[in-house]
Amino acid sequence: MKYILNETPLKTTNNFRINNITVDLDIKETEFNEYNLSFKNDLDINTEIKTGFDSKIGLKTDKYLYLDITPKKDIKDVLIINYEFNNNSYLASNININLEHDLNTIIVFRSKTESFLNFKLSVNSKENINSNITLVNLTSDSSTNLVAIENSVNTNSNIITNYVDIKGKLRISNYYSDLYKEKSSSSFNTIYIGNNDERLDMNYYVKNNNKRTISNMLFQGALTDNSYKSLKGTIDFVEHVSKSKGEENENCILLSDTCKSRSLPMLLCHEEDVVGSHGMSSGKIDSEKLFYLMSKGISEEEAKRLIIKANFKIVLDNILDSSIKNEIEEIINERIK
């Protein structure tokens, strides 16, 4: 069946078909016995099966697995949540995190064969919260991943969200951050790699919704082969949000002459006293940097990896578990050729 997903917050010209993505999906019911859910550094986590799944991506489904996480004190260790698919499974799931205290989380998805993920992370913070949340997609090359992230950020709180989007044949992601109280801030960092015929559609939106709010978005990516990515990033300064700041940066390295990169960095502004900016650059890897590294004996492939991993550093440094970080680096090495 055809679905129209990932609608931009504000429609623009239809020429480049950037306003949404039309995809043909075969949606099955979630079979809850076909995947494993495991936790490291366990917390009091409620899981239940609910009905009526809906995320800003736009795909509604029926049954889904619901996890509720509410830390009762500041947690030092990183909470790791592993989703592991078995064969051919379809999974709809929503994690809801109520940040009454600081919490750092890594959520990892793994599958070995074709899998379909429809996932939503909802985060609500109280005042004075600092959290670092990372989502890592280590599903198979033939997987389809729909990942929606939503957060609403309270006074004086800062939520950093990292999304490692490096595998899967079709990847649709959506981020919505509502900075609804004064001095709230959020950072969203994505690293992505596209190989083969992989298709990525990203629709990220931050609303500076109160005074002295700060939004940051950073996208670092590399495309090879025939991969095709479409990135829509929006910063929205609504009315009465004086002294707010918003910044969006994108850098896309193109490693083949058949890959395609489409971007729409939107900057919407309805307030005088703000500072907003976006910067975008795309093109091949800097040839002078490449020459410098190669002249010191480093192979072209290795030099490209070094430069791309350096671009990815900000996200990699945010991954607070070294074994997951190593796993990611190895996949990057494999995928940058």
């Binding site: 480049f16 002459d257 729409l264 960095p265 939107m266 919407l268 976006h278 093109g283």
Partner: peptide, 19 residues
């Protein structure tokens, strides 16, 4: 509002955009 759409189909270019 700034609403720029870019479509790049070629690796051998230099494209910088700022707002």
């Amino acid at each position: 509002d700034t609403i720029p759409v870019d479509l790049v189909e070629n690796d051998d270019i230099e494209y910088a955009h700022e707002a």
